[in-house]
């Protein structure tokens, strides 16, 4: 464990906590893409299959349970909570997220480290996480005004994988140059997808104005 990875995990955890707080405190999920949240549940379920078979550390197991629990509860709130589900922008959140999941799965069948169920599904989760934010970014462009909590949520979500990139650079130089192409390239794609959001987020923060993405 290095400081960059810990910072990345904490940033990721903070983003999820901010989203849960927004939903529970305001009883609203306006501006949040249910499609992206559902993709994240799939990412965690397919990535943490070895949760009960492989013990890495107390921290690792705890965080996996927290990520699984919070992401599933967010989807539950948006789908079934009587008040929250009324605030879901169903007609704007129209991204066909299966168009994202299927190519990722096919790619995982083609390009992976080893052809086992655990490894292929883990690889699928890495590819899927890279593109899972797309429905959310599309929804933000359609939303007239983005509330601060939603903006912060997306920013932290993008920042966590950027910190993971730094963690991988650090591990490359400190762990006898172990190469991990799959997460590296996927993480690079994932972080790049946030590039224009980062630009508008930082600009709105500097000029102290409302965050607005160009349509």
């Amino acid at each position: 464990m290095n400081v960059f990875r810990l910072a990345g995990d904490m940033t990721h955890l903070l983003s999820i906590i901010i989203l849960l707080l927004k939903i529970r405190a305001t009883k609203s999920c306006t501006g949040i893409s249910l499609k992206t949240q559902e993709l994240y549940v799939i990412v965690f379920l397919t990535r943490y299959l070895d949760l009960f078979t492989k013990y890495i550390s107390f921290y690792n197991t705890t965080m996996k349970l927290v990520f699984l629990g919070t992401s599933i509860s967010i989807v539950w709130y948006m789908r079934y909570h009587k008040v929250v589900k009324q605030t879901y922008n169903k007609d704007q959140d129209t991204f066909r997220h299966y168009f994202l999941a299927i190519p990722c799965f096919l790619l995982a069948l083609l390009i992976h480290h080893e052809f086992t169920v655990i490894e292929v599904l883990w690889t699928f989760s890495i590819y899927l996480e890279a593109v899972a934010i797309l429905p959310q970014l599309v929804l933000l462009q359609r939303s007239r005004n983005i509330d601060n909590l939603t903006g912060n949520y997306v920013f932290l979500l993008g920042a966590y994988r950027a910190l993971y990139l730094v963690n991988w650079v650090y591990r490359y130089f400190t762990e006898n140059h172990l190469v991990r192409w799959i997460p590296w390239l996927s993480g690079l794609v994932q972080t790049t997808l946030y590039a224009d959001f980062f630009y508008y987020y930082i600009k709105s923060w500097k000029n102290n104005e409302k965050l607005q993405l160009p349509a």
């Binding site: 990875r5 995990d9 990721h12 990535r47 070895d50 492989k54 890495i56 690792n60 965080m63 996996k64 990520f67 480290h113 080893e114 490894e119 883990w122 993971y164 963690n167 991990r180 997460p183």
Partner: peptide, 10 residues
């Protein structure tokens, strides 16, 4: 490259 990846990250 059958490097068994030890998935020690989240």
């Amino acid at each position: 490259r059958g490097q068994p990846q030890s998935h020690d990250e989240l």
